[in-house]
Nucleic acid binder design. Structure first.
Length: 183
DNA sequence: CTATTGATGGTC
DNA sequence: ACCATCAATAGG
């Protein structure tokens, strides 16, 4: 069963936690590549200085201003794609970065980092704006098994030291003790 | 610690 | 038309 629009149309922080244990699936030219989500980060709205959309609506950030449940995939450091899901209501730009997976099917290499998981599932900017709630989509998220709150750890986001007051906020979530969480 | 790599957004 | 920067990673 796929997660529906209403799953994503909630507070980004809630979605970030609730995505742990869910299964990201990419049907890549007929082959299923999938992993269980074990680490996420919340990027919340125009005031979050670490959120790309805090610089306004541009060609890149446009998708974050749209409907929840769509993919936001962007290129970082000229080499790595990062996969996010758009959250909250239309017009309020926010997303959850998926940082690590436990590999399940068809993964090429490791999945313990945002760039690595995209490489492993063959997710690129070609999938940007894809609707994750559409059963006909090649990129979806299945219900999987939610993680009990007691097994969820929390800490500051990675690589956002530039973000002033928002740099220290604990908006990163991971499954405690899971070996596939990024270093 | 460094090199990598190119899109992106700001400035001139 | 530049230019600094970047939600990362691999390799010393």
């Amino acid at each position: 069963m796929l997660l529906g629009r209403e799953f994503y149309a909630r507070k980004t922080l809630v979605v970030a936690k609730d995505l742990l244990g869910r299964v990201l699936v990419h049907v890549d030219e007929g082959v299923r590549r999938a992993g269980r989500i074990v680490e996420t980060e919340a990027y919340i709205g125009p005031h979050d200085l670490a959120c790309h959309a805090s610089k306004g609506r541009t060609a890149r950030t446009d998708v974050m201003f749209g409907h929840p449940g769509h993919a936001y995939v962007y290129l970082i450091y000229g080499m790595y794609d990062c996969f996010n899901v758009v959250t909250e209501r239309e017009g309020y730009p926010s997303a959850v970065l998926v940082r690590a997976l436990a590999p399940l099917e068809g993964c090429v290499g490791k999945t313990d980092g945002p760039g690595k998981l995209c490489r492993a599932l063959h997710v690129t900017r070609a999938q940007n704006r894809f609707d994750l709630t559409d059963p006909a989509s090649s990129l979806t998220i299945e219900e999987g098994t939610p993680v009990s709150p007691r097994k969820i750890a929390r800490g500051p986001r990675i690589g956002v030291d530039y973000a002033g007051d928002w740099a220290g906020k604990e908006l990163r979530f991971w499954v405690r003790q899971d070996p596939h969480v990024s270093r």
